[in-house]
Simulated scan of single mutants.
Amino acid sequence: MADALLTSDLGSLPLLARGKVRDIYAISEAPGADLLFIATDRISAFDHVLGSGIPDKGRILTQISKFWFEFLADLVPSHVISTAVADFPAAMQPYASQLEGRTMLVRRAEMFPVECVVRGYLSGSGWKDYQATGGICGIPLPAGLRESDKLPQPIFTPAAKINTGGHDENISFDLMVETIGAAHAEALRDLTLAIYAKASEYMAAKGVILADTKFEFGLIRDAENPDGKITLADEVLTPDSSRYWPADRYAPGGPTPSFDKQYVRDYLESIRWNKQAPAPALPTDVIENTREKYMQAFRLITGRTGIEDHA
């Protein structure tokens, strides 16, 4: 198993941000320059980046996103220019070993300050909200639903991006309208629900339930679209941004096993970590089992057996 890439280093290229997983660089100092999104092998839980990475995680996530961006192209354009290092500018070529398979060259977008969340099943923060209020984000739901129950129909529950404290805050659709305007809010809601419907149907044929997911959109302006064209950005339908459940293990009335980092969260709970820095490292078996869960998701989604064919 390869070593995990925890931090990228692209020399003098402008580093714009290091997130919990992604490092974002501009390809030059020029205003509006295209960006490099590098998915490292960092893994976070309970709002902390852990002391160990998961080898190949960044490659797996990047190639899952690439698959979905292409699959959804008839519904919405993406910000991706290329994921092939050979297509990147010459200044990137000396760093090919870091970039290969885990990097997207993308157009810079003006990102909407909301996350577009869609839920088809009752889980996570939606389940907590339902227990407290009988609905989610102000949307009333039938009484008597259980954890993991399928909702009568998928619902759109946006969240505001909060830059402090590491959390996003569920908001009402009315507040979303106040934040970005009715036309954009309605367009993002309709796109989110359409993407979820198409992706859910695809995964159901593979014996997988897409319980919920979240998307990020931005506006890209050019000569043809001076007011900006709505574009799907960041990551899409990865195990880090979505709940994928194996259909043959689905049993409403409690939590459902998923192809994501819940395995890591369960380990951290078992060692009674206080969820304060410094975050602990993971033992080898947890690292290997977590990588395999990501690989299972990759194989199910893409139909490919390995991540070597990444161009």
Rank of each mutant, 00 (worst) to 15 (best):
S44L: 10
I230N: 04
A279C: 13
L105R: 09
E186Q: 01
L219K: 06
G228C: 00
P226Q: 06
I287Q: 04
W273L: 02
L15R: 06
S200N: 09
P280V: 09
Q262V: 08
E186Y: 00
Y25F: 14
P283A: 15
L175K: 15
A73Q: 12
D240R: 01
S148I: 04
L105Y: 14
L6Q: 12
T157M: 12
M176V: 15
L232S: 00
E70D: 14
I81A: 02
I220K: 06
L13S: 08
Y294R: 05
G165N: 08
I24E: 10
Y244V: 12
Y196D: 03
P278T: 11
H48T: 14
T133P: 03
V177M: 03
F37Q: 01
I38C: 02
L141G: 10
Y294M: 07
R102G: 02
W245F: 13
A185S: 02
L145G: 01
L10W: 15
R42E: 00
R249W: 15
E29D: 08
G51K: 00
T192R: 12
A73I: 10
A160S: 15
L5G: 02
V76Y: 04
R146H: 10
V76N: 03
I287V: 13
D212K: 06
I64G: 06
S242I: 08
D34G: 03
E100W: 12
F173A: 14
T133W: 05
E186F: 00
S241M: 05
F173D: 13
G58S: 11
F88H: 02
K293P: 07
H184D: 11
P113S: 01
E288C: 01
A247M: 14
V76P: 02
T284C: 02
R272V: 05
D3V: 06
F298N: 05
D212C: 03
E169L: 12
N225V: 11
P158H: 13
R272I: 06
E100R: 13
A233W: 02
T284K: 08
A185G: 00
L36P: 05
P252F: 13
D248F: 15
P113D: 00
F67Y: 12
F88V: 01
D227M: 11
F67P: 10
M104R: 13
P142V: 15
D227A: 13
T302K: 15
S78N: 08
F46L: 13
R272W: 07
T103S: 14
A33N: 07
I24W: 13
L6T: 09
A39S: 08
Q296D: 05
F71I: 11
S148W: 06
I162P: 00
E115S: 09
P77C: 00
L105G: 06
S97A: 07
L300T: 08
M295W: 03
T238W: 03
